[in-house]
Design a protein around this nucleic acid. Structure first.
Length: 200
DNA sequence: CGACTTTGACCTGCGC
DNA sequence: GCGCAGGTCAAAGTCG
C-alpha cells in the first residue's frame, strides 16, 4: 500500500498515509494523474482541462509542483494507458481541524483523471458526500466527499469534464490516517503497473 | 435507526 | 464595496 505514496512527494508527516485507488468495475483503461499546473487561470483554455487544477491555489500557488506522465500500451487492449501524476504541495503537510475562519493552510492535492463511466470510483475507503456545486464552464457538477473514518480528514472532489464526459477527475486532499477499509486488488494491480514506470 | 445523499444557504477569497 | 465562484454546513430526505 505504501508504494502508492511513493508516487507523490508527500510533504505530510507521511508516516501512515495510505493512498490507494482502484477500479472495482472495469470500464476504464486509463488513469491520469493531473497536475496543478501553474498556468494562469485566465488561460481561457478552461475547456481543455479541469478548472480544479487552479482551484484553491488561486493561481498564485507555486509552492511546489510535481508532474509526471507515464504512458503504456497493452497488447490485449487497443487502448492506451496514460498516467499523469500530479501533485500540488503546500509544503506544509496535512493537518486536520482547519475550521472556517481560520487562516487558510494549503494542503497538497492530488488529482486523478480517470476514464470511467461512473463518477464514483470505489477506492476502498468510505466517503460521505457533503456538497455539490455547479462549476463554471462545465456542464457537470462537482461533488465533494469526505472520508467517514473518524478523525480522518481526507477530502476528495469528483468532476466530469465537459470536453470529454468519459473522463472523471478526482482530486484528493490530505492523507488517510487509517488503513484502507476494503481490499482492492484490482487497483493495486494498477498501482503496480504505475510503479514500473515511475522513476521515483 | 443509522448511514448516506440532496440541496439551498452561508462563508470566504478574489477581481473589478 | 459588490458580485462571482468555489467550498462548506446542516436540515431534511432517502435507503437498506
Amino acid at each position: 500500500m505504501e508504494k502508492f505514496q511513493m508516487l507523490f512527494p508527500s510533504s505530510s508527516s507521511s508516516s501512515s498515509a495510505h493512498h490507494q485507488y482502484y477500479d472495482d468495475h472495469h470500464h476504464h483503461n486509463s488513469i491520469n494523474f493531473l497536475s496543478s499546473s501553474s498556468s494562469p487561470p485566465s488561460s481561457s483554455s478552461m475547456n481543455d482541462g479541469p478548472s480544479m487544477m487552479m482551484m484553491g491555489s488561486s493561481a498564485a500557488d507555486h509552492d511546489y509542483h510535481h508532474q509526471h506522465q507515464i504512458s503504456t500500451n497493452n497488447d490485449d487492449h487497443d487502448e492506451e494507458q496514460v498516467v499523469t501524476v500530479a501533485y500540488q504541495g503546500g509544503g506544509g503537510g496535512v493537518e486536520g481541524g482547519k475550521k472556517k475562519g481560520e487562516k487558510k493552510l494549503k494542503k497538497p492535492r492530488y488529482a486523478f483523471q480517470t476514464r470511467s463511466q461512473v463518477d464514483i470510483l470505489d477506492d476502498g475507503y468510505r466517503w460521505r458526500k457533503y456538497g455539490q456545486k455547479a462549476v463554471k464552464n462545465n456542464k457537470f457538477p462537482r461533488s465533494y466527499y469526505r472520508c467517514t473514518y473518524q478523525g480522518c480528514n481526507v477530502k476528495k472532489q469528483v468532476q466530469r469534464l465537459t470536453k470529454d464526459e468519459g473522463v472523471v477527475v478526482t482530486t484528493y486532499e490530505g492523507a488517510h490516517t487509517h488503513p484502507i477499509e476494503r481490499p482492492s486488488d484490482n487497483f493495486e494491480h494498477i498501482l503496480n503497473q504505475m510503479q514500473i514506470y515511475t522513476p521515483f
